[in-house]
């Protein structure tokens, strides 16, 4: 347990007390939503836990280095960006995965690009986005986001 998780837990418990003081009914509903959201995300969490184990235990260091490491260059950035755009992982669960990529030798650029496309771009939700907002806005938003994600990754990689 580290400082970040202590602060977040204190914040959550503080908000819960505040909410409970103001409106018990609403707070009950909030806890219900929290439990439901948690149950919905739980299988994905457990899957990522297994995946991280497999990644560290089985995928050779050289493979990650080749696709997301220092030697991968521009290709590595695009592989990471594409991976993030296609995969549909809740972002909260994606950060541990990203951290283990880093540990396994991926560059900061690759990891930052991966997270940014993962969150900003939804291949799976694109049909819904087109339906609700029209083709032009949806395609423009996802397309420009892809390029920006690569740019963000490169800048972060250059600074860190």
């Amino acid at each position: 347990m580290n400082l970040t998780s202590i602060i977040i837990n204190i914040l959550a418990i503080g908000c819960l007390f505040l909410s409970f003081n103001k409106d018990k009914q609403k707070t009950k509903k909030a806890i219900k939503i929290a439990v439901k959201t948690f149950l919905k995300i739980l299988p994905t969490i457990l899957l990522i836990v297994a995946l991280v184990g497999l990644l560290i235990g089985f995928v050779p260091h050289a493979v990650i280095l080749k696709f997301m490491g220092n030697q991968s260059g521009i290709v590595g950035i695009f592989v990471s960006a594409l991976l993030g755009a296609i995969l549909y992982i809740p972002s909260i669960v994606a950060f541990p995965l990203a951290a283990s990529f880093l540990k396994a030798g991926a560059t900061v650029t690759a990891v930052a690009t991966f997270i940014t496309t993962l969150t900003m771009i939804g291949f799976v939700t694109l049909p819904l986005e087109i339906k609700e907002l029209g083709k032009r806005i949806a395609v423009l938003r996802n397309g420009i986001s892809f390029l920006l994600a690569v740019l963000i990754g490169i800048i972060i990689g250059a600074i860190l």
Partner: peptide, 24 residues
């Protein structure tokens, strides 16, 4: 490595879910 990730998530996710519920 699986255990480590699981432990870390266990400490942070309930609080995050609670905040999501409260905001909703």
């Amino acid at each position: 490595s699986s255990g480590q990730i699981f432990w870390e998530m266990l400490w942070i996710l309930p609080a995050v879910m609670l905040l999501i519920g409260l905001f909703a």
